[in-house]
């Protein structure tokens, strides 16, 4: 894979103002995030867990869709970087009073926001706000913290970091995933986490195998990482993506298994007959994991439905589950993103 090495070696300085999607992330950018996150992980293991990097800067969490975990993780990341944080909560907002999303963003801009972390239940809202911030020449960076079913870049980057840091804690890097097999199991159709992970994991040279019933994994996903009209991918990366409507071929000899949350509404929209049947066919159990590599690790972006997509037994097994590490690493990765995005301005 000299091609990947070439792509990584030509790493210029970080100049990405917004992080909206991983579709156009270059391999060197992944490595910059991984290396930066690793230094912050070291900071977080110290007694004094705070650095003055973003002192005086304002990081605003614009969470139009309610969230506790991701918002807390971003808030802590910003605070560890000594930034001032503002939180926008939809319940107490003016959105119901006729204010547009752009009005809300501009209000926080007027308060001196430097970085906006945005979550919305509809795809594209971070893009719209980023475009408005650019139009106003504000210099504000926008970080997509989950937009509809579109993407959740920081979650995918913390997943990547968790895997790479496990393989080489001293020097987590994209190349470590070459030749690895990663299975992503569950409601891929509705998952913004999976959509971001598809870009990051395939960029590393890993084989990514998706598994779900056809209603949750449309066949067009096979073309997801291809350019729209040619066979090859558009950025020169040789991406390997496979789709399966059964669990077994995805799990066979897998090094990592990622499971996704299954929303209970999927039953009422005729996508699945029952949770019971889903668990029978796609639930991750200790027995099923025997087909994987002996060292297989299981991941989940949370929150989990115990006993639906994964058994409690696996979730709580520290030898198998990376779920707690994912949450811990989330802070370091989000610190890295805020640091890199804020760096240009400071």
């Amino acid at each position: 894979m000299d091609r990947l090495k070439d792509l990584i070696d030509m790493s210029p300085a970080w100049n990405r103002r917004h992080v909206l999607s991983l579709s156009d992330f270059a391999p060197w950018e992944y490595n910059t995030v991984l290396q930066t996150a690793n230094s912050f992980r070291e900071v977080l293991s110290r007694r004094t867990k705070k650095v003055p990097t973003l002192q005086g800067q304002v990081v605003t969490n614009l969470f139009f869709e309610p969230s506790t975990r991701t918002r807390s993780s971003f808030e802590l990341a910003a605070k560890r970087l000594s930034a001032d944080t503002l939180n926008f909560a939809p319940g107490s907002s003016s959105l119901t009073k006729g204010e547009t999303i752009l009005d809300t963003a501009k209000t926080y801009l007027a308060m001196g926001t430097d970085l906006m972390v945005i979550r919305h239940k509809e795809a594209g809202v971070p893009h719209a706000i980023a475009a408005e911030m650019d139009r106003l020449n504000s210099g504000v960076g926008v970080l997509n913290a989950g937009d509809g079913q579109h993407e959740h870049p920081s979650q995918a980057l913390l997943d990547l970091f968790t895997i790479c840091a496990l393989l080489d804690p001293a020097n987590p890097r994209l190349e470590l995933l070459q030749g690895k097999k990663i299975a992503i199991v569950g409601d891929i159709l509705h998952s913004r986490v999976a959509r971001s992970n598809l870009w990051s994991l395939t960029a590393s040279g890993a084989e990514v195998h998706l598994a779900a019933p056809p209603t949750l994994l449309p066949k067009q996903f096979a073309d997801y990482v291809k350019a729209s009209d040619t066979e090859a991918s558009s950025d020169g990366i040789d991406r390997k993506l496979f789709i399966h409507w059964e669990l077994e071929p995805a799990l066979q000899a897998a090094d990592f298994v990622m499971t996704l949350r299954l929303q209970k509404e999927r039953m009422t929209s005729h996508l699945l007959p029952s949770l019971r049947e889903y668990y029978q066919h796609f639930g991750i159990t200790r027995e099923r994991l025997q087909q994987c590599q002996p060292h297989v690790k299981v991941m989940h972006p949370g929150p989990t439905n115990r006993g639906v997509e994964i058994t409690s037994d696996i979730m709580d097994d520290p030898d198998m589950s990376l779920i707690a590490e994912q949450v811990t690493n989330g802070v370091a990765v989000r610190m890295a993103l805020l640091y890199l995005m804020g760096g240009g301005k400071a």
Binding site: G148, R192, R195, Q220, F221, S228, S269
Partner: peptide
């Protein structure tokens, strides 16, 4: 059409728009 907002296909999947 259901809750779809964009023509089904790989672009709708990439952009996260229900098909």
């Amino acid at each position: 059409a259901g809750h779809g907002i964009a023509r089904e296909g790989v672009n709708a999947l990439k952009f996260g728009l229900p098909g």
